[in-house]
Nucleic acid binder design. Structure first.
Length: 487
RNA sequence: GGCCCCGUCGUCUAGCGGCCUAGGACUCUGGCUUCUCAAGUCAGCUACGAGGGUUCGAAUCCCUUCGGGGCUACCA
């Protein structure tokens, strides 16, 4: 039944920014974007801000920033414009009003004078009687007298869509054929009594006007699809021209409930601040409900666009697993060029107050990054690992001080200081050579014992980057001073 | 309650009637490597929700059942 396969693909991501975009939203955006890029189509970004109670300008801006940060660039939408704009529904109110009026005129919709209280009472009764709740059609066929009576009471009507008898069947690209009997799809409201549109009206009108060919969205919207199709029909769109639907499975939290603050971090801002790379987030999210097959997992953004197809999207929900995200983030960090790694690392060093960004600091950071690149999972771990190189008032961590208080440690430090001070060339090879000869060969100590004391004395912690490289970077003067200071 | 969707290792998944005594990844456990932590590497643990069919043959098709989720708004 569906056409549109021959025309150019146009997909949209249309969030309702009633809060920060969360992981689930982003997964949807990612799939929308990947599908558009895969097909060489157009990616439209539209803001559904018809819920004026909950949507705020701040959230809208945050959504824009999040998509940008992730690298999900759009071809039409806020900031870039496009010939089918505006892309904020709040700026399209007159369009919806026109269509609502047209539906009224055509008899597809009607004025409903029922108050919220009356509606609630009806639902209450339906629940009590154990019948399917929903609008009972009270205002479907009002007489002019009844209307006049309502009007004289000061009632202002909403616009309600008439659902005809019968059923709606459509093919979901992920789930196959889905049918809804209209007796379970009650007449629904298109516009509030102040004339403002509801999601059901705006989404359908915009998808048609913006020539959207594929609707990839969360599965929570699956059961609203018959209503959307009903609006298309009223708009005079032929069934063959309806967009194709693909309802994406949910992203769940650890406790098998929809992901929320309670069971996992949901805001992308949190992941950004913790030091996750956009590519890692996208790669991981892509794996939630989709798979490239062939035992592949690690894909770049480019590969994602090449490999992504709706056919490979799952129909079952996926649980968000922080551990796996961390693993992928670590992989992505290790794959970074030194140049890129530095660019990502610098803001974290600054923010932590580890450095201010002087030329000397920058030079040292660039030399130090290679030795920590494979030992971190998030960028946020960088400052703690490199802090010993920049710290002004060096102190040994409390839990490590006692570990070098014994005689043997003292001896190790004493001898190390003596031998190290004779070195003419200060680099990790010469440092290692002289220490091995003094401590391992001459004293016969186990490496892990001998070097542990030095590590603590020099870096202040029993966990650090490789010791000899660390000492080379720290420099002879500071290294020796710290070793002596620990005695 | 009704309607709709979903159900392979703890988690994400491969699988689309025989290649499956079910593969990969993450996690976890153990080994190797090793100056700590990592990284790397080797090995191990663990799954087709259940019950009926169809078929020579089912994780793959059908039915039932159980379980999970969504919707049921003048939210989206």
């Amino acid at each position: 039944m569906p056409a549109n396969t021959s025309s150019k693909v146009r997909v949209r991501f249309a969030p309702s920014p009633t809060g920060e975009l969360h992981v689930g939203n982003i997964r949807t955006a990612l799939f929308d974007w990947a599908y558009a890029r895969h097909t060489g189509g157009t990616f439209i970004f539209r803001i559904e801000d018809t819920d004026t109670e909950r949507v705020t300008p701040e959230y809208i801006q945050a959504a824009i920033n999040t998509l940008k940060w992730l690298g999900l660039d759009w071809d039409e939408g806020p900031e870039v414009g496009g010939e089918n704009g505006p892309y904020l529904q709040s700026q399209r109110l007159d369009i919806y009003a026109e269509w609502a009026a047209k539906f009224l005129e055509q008899g597809d919709a009607y004025h409903c004078y029922c108050s919220s209280e009356e509606l609630e009472a009806v639902r209450e009764a339906q629940r009590a009687a154990n019948v399917a709740p929903g609008y009972n059609g009270h205002c479907r066929e009002l007489t002019p007298q009844e209307i006049a009576a309502y009007l004289s009471e000061g009632r202002k009507p909403v616009v309600r869509m008439r659902m005809p008898d019968g059923s709606t069947t459509f093919t979901d690209l992920i789930r196959g054929e889905v049918t809804f009997e209209h007796k379970f799809v009650p007449d629904f409201v298109l516009a509030r009594n102040d004339g403002s549109p509801l999601y059901t009206l705006a989404v359908a009108v915009d998808d048609v006007l913006m020539k959207v060919t594929h609707v990839l969205r969360g599965e929570d919207l699956l059961s609203s699809t018959p209503r959307q199709l009903r609006v298309y029909d009223a708009m005079g769109v032929k069934a063959a021209d309806y967009p194709l639907f693909a309802h994406l499975p949910f992203v769940m939290g650890q406790d098998n409930a929809k992901l929320s603050k309670r069971n996992g971090e949901t805001s992308i801002a949190w992941y950004r601040d913790a030091g996750y790379l956009p590519e890692a987030i996208c790669n991981y999210l892509a794996l939630l409900g989709w798979s490239p097959g062939e035992d592949r997992e690690n894909v770049t953004m480019k590969e994602l666009t090449e490999l992504f197809t709706v056919e490979r999207v799952h129909s079952s929900p996926a649980r968000f697993d922080m551990k796996k995200l961390e693993a992928i983030n670590g992989d992505k960090i290790r794959a970074l060029s030194l140049e890129d790694f530095f660019t990502w690392a610098m803001p974290f060093m600054r923010k932590a107050g580890t450095v201010t960004g002087t030329d000397e600091e920058v030079a040292l950071i660039k030399k130090a990054l290679p030795i920590i690149q494979e030992r971190i999972v998030t960028l946020g771990e960088i400052p703690a690992l490199l802090n010993f190189l920049f710290v002004k008032d060096f102190v040994i961590a409390a839990d490590s001080v006692e570990k070098i208080a014994d005689e043997q440690s003292k001896k190790v430090l004493q001898i190390s200081a003596e031998r190290l001070s004779t070195l003419t060339e200060w680099n990790h090879e010469s440092i290692e050579a002289v220490l091995r000869s003094a401590l391992i060969e001459e004293l016969g100590l186990k490496p892990r014992i001998a070097f542990s004391a030095l590590r603590i004395a020099v870096t202040g912690s029993h966990i650090s980057p490789p010791l000899f490289e660390s000492m080379e970077l720290l420099g002879a003067a500071k290294s020796l001073a710290r070793i002596r200071g620990a005695l």
